[in-house]
Every structure is written in C-alpha cells, then in structure tokens.
C-alpha cells in the first residue's frame, strides 16, 4: 500500500529470485496473473466500450459496428448532447450540490471533530454519543421522507445540502486525527491567550488538512453519486434532478423501448426503434459525462481514498 510496504515487497521478491521457480510455481503464477488480468479487464472494459461508442460516428454506433475500436472519430455526440436541454440543468445542479454540500460538510465535521476532543465541553461524552448513535440507527425511509416534507425540504435545492452537513462518521475520523496532533502545540497557544476559535482556525484547521482532504473526497463522490434524495424528495421538480437521476430516467426510457423493439411486438413501429437507438447514444454520452469526473479524479486521489478506509478501520 504505502511506499514503504512496496519497497519491502521488492526486497522480498529480490530475495526469492535466487530460488529457482518450480513447475508448480509457474503454473500458479500463470493462473494468478491471468485471473487478475481478466478481472481488471472486466473492470475497465465497460468504461472503454461506452467511451469508444461516444466518440464514434453515431450511424455506426446505431448499427452496432463499434465493438473494440472506435471508428470515424467525432465529437458530434457530445455536441448534440448540448441540445438535450434538461441535461445541463442537471449538470449544474450536481456540480453545485457537490461543491456546496462538500464544503459545508467538511467545515462542520472539522469544527465538530475539534469540539468533541475538548474535555471542557459541557457534557462532552453525552453530545459525542448523541452524534455517534445516529450512525447505527435510523427511523426508516418513510418517516425520514415525512420529516423532510414537514420541514419544507421537498422540491428544493436545500434538500440536497442541509441533511448531509452533519456526518457522524466523518466527525469521528476528524476527531481521531486531531487526537493524534501533539497537545503541546495547542497548550502553548492557550498560554499565549488564544481563544478556542483562534486555536481552531490557526492551528487545528491547517494541521488537520490531510484528513479534511480525505473526507472532502469521500463527500464529493457521495454527492456526485447521490440519487435517492433527488428521486424521493424532488420527484416533482425536474429542474432539480441530479445527473444520476437524469441518467436513470434515460436508461429506463431506453431499456423500455429496447424491450419493445426486441420482443418484436411492435416491430413495425420504426419510430420506436429509431428513438431507442437515439436514446442509446444519448444514454452512452450521459453515462460518460457522469463517469468522467470520477475517472479523472480517481488516480490522483487514490491514496486519500485508501487512507480514509484505513482510518475508518481504526476508529474508536
């Protein structure tokens, strides 16, 4: 995982290279490498397949000629996506919720994580448990929905942001991290007369940036992928649909039309057939628009993701 462990592995493999590989080892290695290569391929190929279909001539795509390599490269599909008006509102809504929602969540988790480490906090244990318990218990989908509609958080953008601000899991991660910062730094600032707020802003916030980056990335991916709140709370406001919700709608449209075309019940209905193939291109292109940010960000952020997982595993 870490650089250190990789070096260790290298050292050990260097040691083994002196030992002659037996026939059994070779067979094992072939099977092992083949399995992982195939599985990795299965993880990449669907993305690749959709991608080459979006950059190829749409006529070839509708004919189904694009299988392994792109042909007659074009950006026409992406350009014509611009004409699908409702897509852009979804893109804007999704970007806005990702940015605003993540920023607020990170700020609140950071502050809360700091506060629950302070022994002076009035009834600290109680409030910490008060937050943590909510991870293990929920009232259920319908009471949650009724509560949100009672609060007026249906058919509104705020429904995407406000409920996600307090995230107990992230608060625990930040708390664990802050506890690892040497207490002396904070104490010396105290002796100099700094207030809690100053200490938080000038010391804790900068020092806890690594963990904040980690929870920010998890939070952003969560916001980008979220779908249920759009589906349940904003069902009557198409202008507020998130990108995932929009994609879901297009996928359903397409699969229904595809099913009709396949069953042959309305084989004469060429309009349905044609529109099904058009939806196929739309569907591929929206999928790509939805996946690309994650695929682009992922390789750079991988270490943060893994760090987040590790921290979660040792949470107290």
């Amino acid at each position: 995982m870490s650089e250190l462990s990789l070096k260790k592995k290298k050292a050990s493999s260097g040691g083994e290279s002196h030992i002659k590989l037996t026939a059994g080892d070779i067979v094992f290695n072939i099977i092992n490498y083949a399995f992982f290569a195939l599985f990795t391929l299965s993880c990449i190929f669907p993305f690749y397949y959709i991608f080459i279909n979006t950059i190829s001539n749409p006529e070839l795509v509708t004919k189904g000629s694009i299988t392994l390599i792109p042909m007659e490269l074009t950006v026409q599909n992406y350009v014509s996506m611009g004409k699908v008006g409702d897509l852009w509102s979804s893109v804007v809504i999704t970007i806005l919720r990702t940015v605003i929602g993540t920023a607020l969540m990170v700020m609140v988790s950071s502050l809360a994580g700091y506060l629950v480490t302070k022994k002076e906090l009035w009834h600290r244990q109680f409030w910490y448990r008060f937050l943590v318990i909510t991870m293990y218990f929920n009232a259920g989908l319908i009471p949650w929905y009724l509560n949100m509609s009672m609060l007026g958080l249906t058919d509104s953008f705020a429904a995407y942001i406000i409920p996600g601000i307090v995230s107990p899991y992230n608060i625990i991660l930040v708390k664990t991290y802050i506890e690892s910062i040497p207490a002396e730094i904070e104490e010396s600032a105290f002796m100099d007369g700094a207030s809690y707020w100053t200490i938080y802003r000038k010391i804790i916030w900068p020092l806890s940036k690594p963990i904040l980056a980690t929870i920010a990335i998890f939070g952003a991916v969560g916001h980008w992928n979220s779908f249920q709140d759009s589906l349940i709370l904003n069902a009557n406001s198409p202008e507020l649909y998130t990108l995932q919700h929009r994609l879901y709608i297009y996928l359903n449209k397409s699969s229904n039309l595809g099913a009709i075309a396949a069953s042959g019940t309305s084989s004469g209905d060429s309009a349905a057939l044609a529109s099904s193939f058009n939806t196929k291109i739309i569907q591929y292109t929206i999928s790509m628009v939805t996946i690309l940010p994650i695929l682009c960000v992922y390789p750079f952020m991988q270490r943060y993701f893994e760090k987040g997982l590790m921290l979660g595993a040792v949470k107290g």
């Binding site: 599985f39 669907p46 397949y49 999928s287 992922y298």
Partner: peptide, 23 residues
C-alpha cells in the same frame, strides 16, 4: 490491478446499470 478494481466502488449503482445495459 489495485487501481482499476477499486474504481467500480466509486461509481453509483445507476452507472453500474448503465454499464450493464451497454454490455
């Protein structure tokens, strides 16, 4: 292997379904 096999965890189920449809 590690990088590419963890990617599917970070896409939504809707996107998984989109991939499923494509394949």
């Amino acid at each position: 292997v590690q990088t590419f096999t963890t990617i599917p965890n970070f896409i939504s189920w809707v996107l998984v379904y989109a991939l499923a449809l494509a394949i």
